[in-house]
Design a protein around this nucleic acid. Structure first.
Length: 833
RNA sequence: GCCCGGGUGGCGGAAUCGGUAGACGCGAGGGGCUUAAACCCCCUUGAGCCAAUCGGCUCGUGUGGGUUCGAGACCCACCCCGGGCACCA
């Protein structure tokens, strides 16, 4: 028999033993600091979570999005890693070979900005911050396979960024082009459209202006169809993320055709509504459209158009959007509608974007609200070509209906009219059916120091020449001055820039742009499978064992960009024969934000509650439990200060109950034992199901209810064997959530082996079953009585009991019973009239 | 403007399939333990009304309608809050 009080060495609780039943025999609180340090050391020393590929076992590849090493964990990190670690530990107990690695997204602007501000080299600062955060992660009890730790700023990692770039370059998937880009005047750098938030620089908030620069792009648009089609395969992704990706790719079908300019010249337009072509009453070109200059040459309108172009180019996205209503100017030129020869004015307006479609549209105000707004503002003609419903009171009618005012299309509905007109355009050689995407190519150039150098040499005679692979990595040189002055800081390092052309050997210049950090994060999860490989990006066989990720956990803010780029690169690697899978992430879980006072926790808002302080005051286990308990993981969670006291109190209670001396009674098993065992099995059922469906916030109450049942049991002639078994089950359930305290109690009470290596138990449905349930008796849908009945009651018995209930009778007598709906064992509804 | 979420006690939240609204925790109030406090334990805690003993009734999940024996959940319209966005032809 296992003794009721057992302290293994080293003793971690200064226990004062006091006699008497129910008397507390140790302090209220356990010594969380000593216990947590002890187990963190043991897990690390024993390498509990270090894993190798093992085809004989089912694998589970579990990744929390690797963080930017900002220097300290915040509550969002804690939430993320608590979920991830819970899953790692749970799946391990379920017998999976679980890989849970950690790494660092360590290139990027913040480190460079900090360097500019403090003069400390980004590498020094970054590595210091990595060390701090790794310590804090270990203090949380999050167990990663640290032998696989990677950091994107290390040459051993970014070498393979460069290698990947060369592969894309040689496949025509990386190219350089002059393009209008968003320019942040403060950071002196280019931002992708995606990185401009409300017209302002995502990172520093400065309004963005437009500027032309030669930039490197990845041709993600070549993969648009596959990226779109495969969204359907991501059945374990949240619907909202799938919707966002679909919208981002934005496939639209329509037609592309040429419109002649009256007096010479032509331009191409894209439309999704070619069926409305007879309703075209004007055309609009984007301000940047190359034809504009020729159209206005020598015309009186030229000056106004140039002023408008100037204003549009200067205006940030923010200003353009704040404008509200449509603006534009007449070019003085006219276009000819190809279907009927009608002569219509050509305008320039910034609601047409050069980056989408052809940068020019046919405007059909009758069927497009934006065109309608523009037409009414500038007094332009409106022709309806789709018959709106009789009760239509709106402006532009975008719905389906019979075509009108459209010659040979009259009477046809939208789809048929589209087919007919596209056929006509193709027959005449004017245009063709066309698919257009909102998705644009991925701009990867950054005029920054702290990133992977792009491995290209520009030779005056050979052009853009890839750096030979045996010369990789192109190392970041040491620089004195990180401040970008309109060009990359690398451009100021002569020894870096000046090189020999790998092709002809003549003098040449290195590319001085570095890569977007999204490049690193789009393949790092492959590197985890083979992190120390010096010969290759990774061994395809090792990757094939682990990939795809069985679970990927991160913030919903990455719903589009990171996840789309990672999907794209995975498909490229698949096409190269390196990846065995086309989709990297089988299951995606996006957690909500932590908010306080109606806003996301952030330093700038001054509403930060530092989690690391709580390691000291409450312990990592209490903090983990609190995050699990806080609310539904997918939803934003509102921080409340008192909550962690509650989870700490719960752990204290578990500690007390399981470590105190108890006067056990030697008696036969009876209902009291069956009840507490039943409570344990019901808790196990609930906790298991809740973990499987990511409802951690309801798993914690199940444990609290069990603890309450155990408390009751202890006060009522407890049997040692029963209690010991219930504690065993409680600790197994608690192990993934509050691992330190549960390991310590497990060891103290002398259970076999290390808790983390135990199998997750199965619940016994027979033991979990409730003997009786509360039957609710409703009269006309209102609850009138509640009666305890056997759980296996028949509908007939339930109905009889309901009709015999005194309380029910009071409402039934004198009325006709019209219907009885019996849903045993929970509810009977008697309908009387 | 468009897209995606959300609105339940004093607070965080629960209610998995349309079936007991408010689990669990926090906070608050009362009691016990204590010389006293902390800790801990027990009880109460949606609102209103009646009974003032056991209890009982009415209302109640943002608002207004609807479907249903029955709606927090489903449908329609609206209000409010949060997040995202590239006026995407």
């Amino acid at each position: 028999m296992i003794p009721t009080l057992f302290i293994n060495d080293p003793p971690l609780c200064a226990i004062v033993i006091m006699p008497g039943p129910g008397t507390l025999s140790c302090p209220m609180s356990y010594d969380h600091k000593a216990i947590e340090a002890k187990w963190q050391r043991i897990w690390e020393d024993e390498g509990v979570f270090q894993v190798e590929a093992d085809p004989s076992r089912p694998k589970f590849y579990n990744v929390c999005m690797y963080p930017y090493p900002s220097g300290a964990l915040h509550q969002g990190h804690i939430r993320n890693y608590t979920y991830g670690d819970l899953l790692t530990r749970y799946k391990t107990m379920r017998g999976f070979n679980v890989l849970s690695p950690m790494g660092w997204d360590s290139f990027g602007l913040p480190a460079e900005n900090a360097a500019i501000a403090t003069g400390v080299h980004p590498r020094i600062n970054t590595e210091k911050q990595i060390a701090t955060m790794a310590t804090q992660m270990k203090q949380l009890g999050a167990m990663y396979d640290w032998s696989r730790e990677i950091a994107s700023h290390q040459p051993s990692f970014y070498k393979w960024d460069q290698w990947l770039f060369l592969e894309l370059f040689e496949r025509g998937l990386a190219y350089k082009k002059e393009a209008p880009v968003n320019w942040c005047p403060k950071d002196q750098t280019v931002l992708a459209n995606e990185q401009v938030v409300d017209g302002e620089c995502e990172r520093c908030g400065t309004p963005v202006v437009r500027r032309n620069l030669a930039q490197w792009f990845f041709r993600i648009t070549d993969y648009a169809d596959r990226l779109l089609a495969d969204i359907d395969k991501l059945e374990h992704w949240p619907d909202r993320v799938r919707t966002m990706q679909r919208n981002w790719i934005g496939r639209s079908e329509g037609a592309r055709f040429t419109i002649e300019v009256d007096g010479g010249g032509s331009f191409e337009v894209f439309t999704t509504r070619p069926d409305t072509i007879f309703g075209m009453t004007f055309c609009v070109l984007a301000p940047e459209h190359p034809l504009v200059d020729r159209l206005i040459e020598g015309k009186p309108e030229a000056e106004a158009v140039r002023a408008y172009q100037e204003k549009a180019s200067r205006a940030s996205e923010l200003e353009r959007m704040a404008e509200g209503d449509k603006t534009g100017v007449f070019t003085g030129a006219h276009a000819i509608n190809p279907v009927n020869g009608k002569r219509v004015p050509i305008y320039v307006a910034d609601y047409v974007l050069m980056g989408y479609g052809t940068g020019a549209i046919m405007a059909v105000p009758g069927q497009d609200q934006r065109d309608w707004d523009f037409a009414t503002k500038y007094g332009l003609e409106i022709i309806r070509t789709v018959q709106p419903p009789d009760d239509w009171e709106g402006e532009a009618y975008v719905g389906d209906g019979p075509t009108i005012n459209s010659d040979f299309l009259d009477g046809l509905y939208m789809d048929e009219a589209k087919d007919r007109i596209i056929g006509w355009l193709e027959e005449k050689g004017i245009g063709e059916r066309s698919v257009n995407y909102r998705l644009r190519d991925w701009l990867i150039s950054r005029q920054r120091y702290w990133g992977s150098p792009i491995p290209i040499v520009e030779c005056p005679s050979c052009g853009l020449v890839p750096v030979p692979r045996d010369q990789l990595p192109v190392l970041l040189p040491e620089v004195e001055d990180w401040l970008p002055k309109g060009r990359s800081p690398l451009a100021a390092v002569d020894s870096f820039v000046n090189t020999d052309c790998p092709s002809c050997g003549g003098p040449a210049r290195r590319e001085t742009d570095t890569m977007d950090t999204f490049v690193d994060s789009s393949w790092y999860f492959f590197r985890f499978t083979d992190p120390h490989n010096e010969e290759a990006m990774f061994d395809p066989e090792k990757a094939a064992y682990w990939m795809p990720l069985d679970q990927y956990i991160g913030g919903v803010e990455h719903a589009v960009l990171h996840l789309l780029y990672a999907r794209f690169i995975t498909k490229v690697l698949y096409d190269m024969g390196l990846s065995s899978v086309e989709e990297p992430f089988t299951r995606l879980f996006t957690q909500g934000m932590i908010t306080l006072g109606g806003a996301k926790m952030s330093k700038s808002k001054g509403n930060v509650v530092d989690p690391v302080d709580m390691y000291e005051s409450h312990g990592a286990d209490a903090l983990r439990m609190f995050h699990l308990f806080l609310g539904p993981p997918t939803e934003d969670a509102i921080w409340n200060d008192g909550g962690i006291d509650g989870t700490r109190r719960f752990l204290d209670r578990v500690w007390r109950m399981t470590t105190q001396s108890v006067d056990f009674v030697d008696r036969p098993e009876d209902d009291r034992d069956r009840e507490v065992i039943g409570a344990a099995h019901r808790a196990l059922k609930k906790v298991t199901e809740d973990i499987e469906r990511f409802h951690f916030n309801t798993a914690i109450p199940a444990l609290m209810i069990l603890a309450n049942a155990m408390g009751d049991y202890l006060g009522n002639e407890p049997r040692d064997e029963t209690f010991h078994e219930v504690v065993r089950m409680l600790l197994l359930m608690l192990a993934p959530m509050a691992p330190h305290i549960s390991h310590e109690i497990w060891e103290m009470r002398g259970y076999e082996g290390m808790l983390a290596e135990q199998a997750w138990p199965d619940w016994d449905p027979e033991l979990a079953r409730e003997e009786t349930v509360t039957l609710v008796i409703q009269i006309n849908g209102k609850v009138r009585d509640r009666i305890e009945v056997p759980a296996d009651i028949t509908p007939e018995d339930a109905e009889r009991i309901a009709l015999e209930s005194d309380k029910a009778r009071a409402f039934i007598d004198g009325h006709e019973v019209r219907k009885v709906i019996a849903k045993p064992p929970r509810l009977v509804n008697v309908v009387v009239g």
